[in-house]
Nucleic acid binder design. Sequence first.
DNA 1: GATGAATGAGGCTTCATTCAT
DNA 2: CATGAATGAAGCCTCATTCAT
Lengths: 207, 207, 207, 207
Amino acid sequence: MPKRAISEESKEDRRNFILSCAEEIVKTNGLSGLNIQSVAKKSGFATGTIYLYFANKEDLIAHLTLDSRKELLRIFEKSIVGEGLAMKQLSKVMEAFFHFYETRPHYYELVSFFEKNTGLEEPEELELMSRKINQLVADILKKGKKQGHIRNDLDEMTFSFLLWGSSVGILQLLEVKKSIIKRTLNTDSFDFFSKHIELVLHAIKVD
Amino acid sequence: MPKRAISEESKEDRRNFILSCAEEIVKTNGLSGLNIQSVAKKSGFATGTIYLYFANKEDLIAHLTLDSRKELLRIFEKSIVGEGLAMKQLSKVMEAFFHFYETRPHYYELVSFFEKNTGLEEPEELELMSRKINQLVADILKKGKKQGHIRNDLDEMTFSFLLWGSSVGILQLLEVKKSIIKRTLNTDSFDFFSKHIELVLHAIKVD
Amino acid sequence: MPKRAISEESKEDRRNFILSCAEEIVKTNGLSGLNIQSVAKKSGFATGTIYLYFANKEDLIAHLTLDSRKELLRIFEKSIVGEGLAMKQLSKVMEAFFHFYETRPHYYELVSFFEKNTGLEEPEELELMSRKINQLVADILKKGKKQGHIRNDLDEMTFSFLLWGSSVGILQLLEVKKSIIKRTLNTDSFDFFSKHIELVLHAIKVD
Amino acid sequence: MPKRAISEESKEDRRNFILSCAEEIVKTNGLSGLNIQSVAKKSGFATGTIYLYFANKEDLIAHLTLDSRKELLRIFEKSIVGEGLAMKQLSKVMEAFFHFYETRPHYYELVSFFEKNTGLEEPEELELMSRKINQLVADILKKGKKQGHIRNDLDEMTFSFLLWGSSVGILQLLEVKKSIIKRTLNTDSFDFFSKHIELVLHAIKVD
DNA sequence: GATGAATGAGGCTTCATTCAT
DNA sequence: CATGAATGAAGCCTCATTCAT
């Protein structure tokens, strides 16, 4: 059994290694710059070997996305530790999102990959992570309501979706128009995103 | 009715026809499903003919985007006609955005095309349209401040960018997760987007 | 008749104009950069119009070459005027060749065009000009023999061909390796070609 | 007999095979008749396979040229073996050139390929071979001077370049005008080229 | 398991030439 | 005569995937 366990483990390791290589490529060249040959080269494996670990390119991308979301959930959970106030927690989560995003300028390409390709559904596990992230935000909301700081007439799940969508959209905008925004508004990216946070908090707080 | 004028006109017509064919393809198959050959086939022209009207594929995409933005501006302008209150105008503009978007599920792919391809800058005219749209929103804000309905401590341009980014993001989310949202929240797309409008208005209104 | 004559003339003019435009393109972009569309654009005519003056692209190139050779003959003839000594005349002709060539870096592409395209024969008129140029050199040789300065055991026509071939070859080499030659030999193009002249004269002179 | 070595070797073999197929095409149809598809077809590989062995068409042409030059150097070296007199060696080298060329009517197209395409530089290795060939001739010259048979006032490198250029030019002329030359001069190609050799030797010999 | 050579369809673009007006 | 829009074959190159070893 030990032997098996070891090889199981190393297989998992190799899989993760390939994934990390792929991620680096996406970071550098964007999703469109990702191809199996380059992943093989970077990881030191042969082309065919990649297909031993992933059914196809799409599967690889799915796992790339999944990993990102897993990490995002971890980051979110860490960000609210030790903070009692829901409003503050929300703020922390959003800031964490900003920082997560900043190191992954091409992340939204991954996120949006699955609907760009007609008929492609998100793999199940991927959706699970999304739901967990959603739940985390919804829980904060609920807590905020109890604390009396957040409007009671606000569906938690709806807000969670809206927050996600709007935040991703603004980070995309930053990615696309960073220089224009900087020039026009005379602020840096974080200042800009902070305004978003401020507006969101304002929108949901009890007057 | 000089001959010149006619041919000029019909040339413009054919150009627009090609553009509309391309748009249809994007609608159906997404941007990644757009290729010159398919545009040629759909429009009934030969491959080379497309290149008489557009310098290359990128140029065609640019004009696709440009046309969309032009129409969006038109729609925005029309949406606020006859409405005196800034808050109402903003609401109308956002609703118009929703309806515009609903008929162009792949529009954001166009919008984000130019930065996904490293080094590709937005053509000038394209940026001009963006600026005009931004200005339209900023003007409404300014008016709202005068009317005393919108917070004075809100930079108009910043808000304009944020509104754009968040709205596009939410519409993307709808596109990607329409069914999940419907299932989870038990609402339709417009209801969902209306919540976004409501939150935005709440965020900026004078208490 | 006047009218006809005029239009005849202007037709010839337009033809020459097109030719000069084509030549300029070859000068700038090389023969491979020459295409009917660019000739049309540069000359201000429509694409189809070019085909009213030249049967096809090949025909146009043939006339381009023909014109060059005509001018070359003119230049050769002028170069020997007023010079009585055959050896000096030969020297003058070769110098003239160098200068002619220098302003037409892509001339040899034209010269060699006709055999690169399998089965293509030189148009008759083109050959006539070649023969005339050959004759001019042969005549100088004959004269030089009479003057007692040039070896009698030298077939004039053979030499004429050899001179042409070797000189074109050396000018091509200069074109291709100008910088290497300059660097390696520490001379300029004319110095280099002068060595060629010197060697040729040395090779044929009576000891 | 390690497996690695075998596959390495066979890979090299296949590469050479592709090269030889390409060479045959150039021989038959000229450089302009060379296209990747035809190389693939002739070699029995798929289009994409060619790109496993050569980065692009240009690279393939470069190696075609390189191979030719390598062989030319080999031939030159062999041609002078066992011959002590520099003048005789030069003669042998030139004869060898003639024979080499005769079996490669399109060789000069390869040689001149790299400058016809603006901005295209000769690959380094290619230049190295040129330099070696040049050096071989220069060495013969030097030796001839020592032997007292070749003029001392002759720069070896200059002569080497001139010899190359003139010889290539004459062989090109032969290629283009073989039939005219035959008809006009009543000699065969080798006789014609021999005259060139004779003139060159005459030009450099000590009187 | 691992390899990596091979595949070949697919996509972009060019350009000589034609032809209806 | 002149136009210039249209053609479409041809060529370069990429890359997801397969399969024999």
